[in-house]
C-alpha cells in the first residue's frame, strides 16, 4: 500500500508544528539580534503552566489565554534583570547566559512538575479523526495545527511588515541614539519584544503539548529543533523560519517513512547540506556572528 499521501500530510503537520516551535526564537533573533538558548525552556514552561490550568479548570482555551501572559511575564523579568546587561557584549555572552538559564530552568521544572511524562488532551472540540476518502485518517487536532501555524505566520507577517513596530525595533537595534532622539524609549520596546517572543514560545509549547506530551528533556529537544529550523531557513528571517520548518518537517517524516536507517540524523543531514550550499541558510541575508 502506498503511504506517500498520508506521509505528506504528516510532513505538513510537523512542518507547521516546527514553525510554531521556532517562531518565538526567530522573532527575538530577527528583531533583537539575541540568540535565546532558553527558548526551549519557555516552550516547556508554557506547556507545564497550561497543564496546571487544564488540570484545575478542565478548560484548554482558558490555558491558551493564561499561558502567554505567564511566560511573557517571566520573559520580561529575565530581560529586565539579566539579559539587558548583555546587549553590548556580543552573541557569545548571550548564548552562554541563556544556556545557563536553560540548565537552571530544566532542573527547577523537573522539581516542580516531576519527572513523569504528562500528556495533555486535545480540547474536546478538536478531538476525533478526519477521514480522507477512506484511504487514511488524520487526527483533527493535527490538522488544527496546520491552521494555528498559518494563522501565526500571517499575524507575524502583518506585525513585522505592515506596522511600525518592526521598523522601530530594527532601527533601535542598529542605532539606539537615533531612535531615542525620535522620542521612543528603546529599552521598553526591546523588553516588549522579548516578552512577546517568550509569550509566543509559551503558547506554542501549549499548542504542541497534545502531540508531544510533556517530560523533562523536551525543552532541549524543542531547542535543537528550533535551532535547526532557523539555521536552515536563515537566522532572523520570518520567511526562512516558515520554509525552513516545512523543509525540516518533510525531511523528518519522509526520512522516517522511507529511510528509517537514517532517521536519527536526517534533519541534521539536511541542515549540513543547506549550510554547505548556502552558509547563511535558505533565506538568510547575512551571516550571524
Amino acid at each position: 500500500m502506498d503511504q506517500l499521501l498520508p506521509q505528506l500530510v504528516n510532513g505538513l503537520v510537523l512542518g507547521l508544528l516546527l514553525f510554531l516551535i521556532a517562531a518565538g526564537f526567530s522573532l527575538i533573533f530577527g528583531l533583537m539580534d539575541v540568540i535565546n538558548l532558553a527558548h526551549g525552556s519557555f516552550l516547556l514552561f508554557g506547556g507545564y503552566v497550561g497543564l496546571t490550568v487544564i488540570r484545575s479548570t478542565g478548560n484548554f482555551w482558558l490555558a491558551v489565554a493564561v499561558v502567554p501572559l505567564v511566560t511573557g511575564a517571566v520573559g520580561l523579568a529575565i530581560e529586565v534583570t539579566v539579559l539587558r546587561r548583555t546587549y553590548t557584549r556580543g552573541h557569545l555572552i548571550q548564548v552562554l547566559l541563556t544556556l545557563g538559564l536553560a540548565l537552571i530552568a530544566a532542573d527547577l521544572m523537573r522539581w516542580n512538575w516531576g519527572a513523569y511524562v504528562e500528556s495533555v488532551d486535545a480540547p474536546a472540540a478538536l478531538a476525533g479523526l478526519v477521514d480522507f476518502g477512506g484511504v487514511f485518517q488524520v487526527p483533527l487536532y493535527r490538522l488544527a495545527i496546520i491552521g494555528f501555524g498559518l494563522l501565526l505566520a500571517g499575524a507575524m507577517w502583518v506585525v513585522l511588515e505592515r506596522t511600525r513596530l518592526g521598523a522601530i525595533v530594527r532601527a533601535g537595534v542598529q542605532d539606539r541614539e537615533m531612535v531615542a532622539a525620535l522620542g521612543i524609549d528603546i529599552d521598553k520596546v526591546v523588553a516588549g519584544v522579548f516578552a512577546l517572543g517568550t509569550a509566543l514560545a509559551g503558547l506554542s509549547g501549549l499548542l504542541a503539548a497534545p502531540v508531544t506530551s510533556l517530560y523533562p528533556g523536551l525543552d532541549f529537544d524543542f531547542l535543537i529543533l528550533a535551532l535547526v529550523v532557523v539555521v536552515v531557513g536563515g537566522m532572523g528571517s520570518l520567511k526562512g523560519a516558515f520554509w525552513g520548518a516545512l523543509l525540516v518537517g518533510m525531511t523528518d517524516v519522509l526520512g522516517k517513512a522511507y529511510f528509517p536507517e537514517f532517521s536519527l540524523f536526517a534533519i541534521f543531514l539536511i541542515m549540513a547540506i543547506v549550510l554547505l550550499v548556502r552558509p547563511q541558510g535558505l533565506f538568510g541575508t547575512r551571516e550571524a556572528t
Binding site: V95, F265, F268, M271, L275
Partner: peptide, 18 residues
C-alpha cells in the same frame, strides 16, 4: 569552517549528533 559564528556552532553540533 565554511561557516562562522552561530552557524559554525550549529554545524559542529549537527556533526556531533550524527
Amino acid at each position: 569552517l565554511r561557516t562562522t559564528g552561530v552557524y559554525f556552532l550549529m554545524l559542529t553540533l549537527a556533526f556531533g549528533q550524527m
